[in-house]
């Protein structure tokens, strides 16, 4: 059975609807908990096992040994695909994924993040 204008109901409904968009950046939509944003390195717990480097699908993480038990980490955020595998592979949870997703920039070099660790204090 054919009926012309079966879609009209929805059209009328839409005339009375509030816009679904928000005035970004003045307003922001809520981010689900599971969203993976910029990865963050915590040097004090890193043991330099290099699991993150081995598992990263896009070669976006580099760990350097500065001194005994002191490591530096570089994230190439332009190359990162934000899958969170490094955070999952890390046995000491030295890498965590934040909710920071606003990483757009004009200069690409800003997206290289270097974090150096202070020598670990003996317990």
């Amino acid at each position: 059975m054919m009926r012309p204008g079966a879609i009209w109901r929805e059209l009328v409904k839409n005339l009375l609807r509030k816009p679904v968009t928000v005035l970004y950046p003045a307003e922001r939509m809520a981010i689900p908990y599971a969203v993976r944003g910029k990865p963050v390195f915590e040097p004090s717990t890193c043991i330099g096992c290099m699991m993150c480097v081995r598992d990263c699908p896009s070669e976006a993480v580099k760990i350097e040994k500065l001194a005994e038990k002191t490591f530096a980490c570089t994230f190439y955020l332009d190359r990162c695909i934000y899958c969170g595998q490094c955070a999952e592979s890390c046995p000491r949870k030295s890498i965590t994924m934040t909710h920071d997703y606003e990483l757009a920039c004009i200069d690409k070099s800003v997206l290289k993040e270097y974090k150096k660790g202070a020598p670990q204090q003996p317990k």
């Binding site: 689900p32 969203v35 993976r36 934000y82």
Partner: peptide, 20 residues
């Protein structure tokens, strides 16, 4: 996005199960 953390390319699978 709520379940996996991404709208596309969910990165939800891992070998031996799922990640989240």
């Amino acid at each position: 996005e709520i379940i996996t953390g991404n709208r596309v390319n969910y990165s939800f699978n891992t070998i031996g199960g799922v990640r989240k």
